[in-house]
Design a binder for these strands. Structure first.
Lengths: 343, 343
DNA sequence: TTCGCCGATTCCAACGTTGTAGCGAGGTTC
DNA sequence: GAACCTCGCTACAACGTTGGAATCGGCGAA
């Protein structure tokens, strides 16, 4: 059985509280006592019981990260960044893969293993902010994505209009006219998809390009297979398409594959742009031009917002931070001229 | 403040223990009492405090998964599988990304947030089994990877000799003679790398192929960049190489990219095989022939071994399970003839 | 010598839950 | 009608820790 403070106390000939004081580095301990206690701790291999500590103090040092899926590169890279940022604050991250299912997400939002976690960083797919438990019920939460309602939670987002507009402008600047958008979603909950589609329409209008409805292709989920399938639909529907803006990189990677299979040259015949900047895109053939989202900034900001809320006023007004993005030009729009394996 | 059993008890006019009995579905509660208590629970939105429960019962329902990194697709996909398998057992998974650093791994092995977690599924990179805390100190552990010493922990592994041999035989069967191995590691801790290299040598010998030392290329870490760099070294060193066995898919994807940049045709000039079967390989150009490791089986087995140890005898003899693998032939060895986007 | 003070340590209670023991009411058995 | 049983519930202690109050011993000041 594992040693407890009781054992250490007995061995060192002091009270339990003195052991606690030594462990927590309190000032009020005589050097000699401290030494004796420390020796006992070492001999018994005592490690404080985090559960008891957390019950007593109300803090566990664990924050949850609820994501739709871990095996999509964007979320995997984001998770990695969150884990690292959380470590800086002495937090351990409990990752919860919701599968994007509303029920799982609701469960996650109301606190996995209630009171186990100090806070939650939540990237919902099916859930809308209005579905979040009323504040006070769930753990302090930072939302990644969109504010769908005015629920009072902190938020880290990106400017989805601008993100897609950046892509469209880049393509228009290269002289492309028939620019398709891939990744539209009809479900009410696909708010990111809706915003990105709006950004597409706005940018097309600004560039004075016709916005044929056939140019907009839906994708129920943003995975490679869906991207490939949508690309086939698109080629069939609009044979003279000369560019595709995909709403994320996975879709774009699927598109690249399907275009190659169809004998379409990229970027000569069709230029392709994604969003996210996941690592695969740097190594694909052709490498993928993309609008990079600053995942490190998103992760860092989310952790910091959470820290502020935990350490500061629990009911301070909610804050919203917009993380940055930037265009990364690679072969899928610039051809072999683009620096290889960069940046 | 959140409602506790005390509040519920007061509201329902019963003792705390009766509330506990209702919550835990004990038999000894009259229907009418149960109804009253349930009503109070609903009105107050009571949810049992997992921390207190865990302190009392010694079980938290949380298992840790310690991995080198989350953003490598193999680990991300594995993590996803573990999360799903754990959910079946009612467990939540706490993911710990160690970065492959010995110190972080040691920390993880001795129990992140001690006593917080019921068990640990551990995929070490830097640590050797001998470095694990003596049994009894850390949490019950299932090791993913290799048994380096005879430490008494459960183990899920793959037959690394056979895995690489499968790849070599496939290439030899296609008539390739100058087959390179990519991913060797000189560090003492890279046991998987050592086993895969042995598998390569054994298979080459069996196939009666010369095993020029120049054909073996090292890669400190198994990422795309390293793969690309190693491929350039290889082309420089052995210009007439006609096949490459990469010790994982990421290396292979880097190799594909570097070969394309060098104007080498795959598989016409050089055939490429990876190990893992991550999703990227299904969509790369050319798509990647690989030796698929059964990640779902690995995850499921690991969770089951852990469950058995937690529910059964704590000190039952350790078990070792070898998970399956199978060759998946795609374009990087079979050319356009291979079914596209399959399987 | 006594008092007060201060630093070091101990004691007690509490965090929210559950296991064990026990208790009263009502029914059954002879 | 006493002995016994079962049912439904309550009381208490315990899990391992920490905050706060209480206590103790030694020392300087009066």
């Amino acid at each position: 059985m594992r040693a407890t403070m009781k054992h250490v106390a007995a061995r060192a000939g002091v009270s339990i509280k003195t052991v606690s004081n030594v462990v927590n580095g309190s000032e009020r301990v005589a050097p000699e006592t401290r030494r004796r206690v420390q020796a006992a701790i070492d001999e018994l291999g005592f490690v404080p019981n985090a559960t008891a500590r957390s019950l007593r103090s109300g803090r566990s040092g664990v924050v949850a990260l609820a994501l739709p899926e871990l095996d999509a590169p964007y979320f995997a890279e984001l998770a990695q960044n969150v884990v690292e940022a959380a470590r800086e604050h002495g937090w351990t991250v409990l990752v919860d893969a919701t599968g994007g299912h509303a029920e799982q997400e609701r469960l996650a939002a109301s606190g996995i293993r209630p009171q186990f976690i100090d806070g939650l960083i939540f990237s919902p797919l099916a859930l809308r902010a209005g579905d979040l438990p009323e504040s006070g019920t769930g753990p302090p939460t930072v939302l990644l994505g969109e504010r769908v309602t005015d629920a009072a939670v902190d938020l880290v987002t990106v400017d989805n209009h601008a993100v897609v507009a950046t892509a469209v402008e880049h393509l228009a600047g290269l002289g492309r006219r028939r620019i398709a958008a891939l990744g539209a979603q009809t479900t009410e909950t696909g708010v990111t998809a809706r915003l990105r589609l709006e950004g597409y329409h706005l940018a097309m209008a600004r560039a004075g390009l016709p916005c044929d409805p056939g140019l907009v292709v839906a994708a129920a989920s943003w995975h490679r297979t869906e991207g490939a399938a949508a690309a086939r639909v698109l080629l069939d529907r609009v044979p003279d398409v000369d560019a595709v803006v995909c709403f994320n990189d996975l879709l774009a990677l699927g598109v690249l594959r399907a275009l190659a299979d169809a004998g379409v040259r990229v970027p000569d015949d069709v230029a392709v742009v994604g969003v996210d900047d996941v690592e695969d895109g740097r190594f694909s053939r052709p490498s993928l031009t993309t609008v990079a989202l600053d995942k490190a900034e998103i992760a860092r900001t989310a952790v910091e917002l959470l820290a502020a809320r935990l350490e500061g006023a629990r009911d301070a007004p909610p804050r919203a931070v917009v993380a940055g993005h930037r265009l990364v030009v690679r072969e899928s729009t610039a051809g072999r001229g683009a620096a290889t394996l960069s940046p």
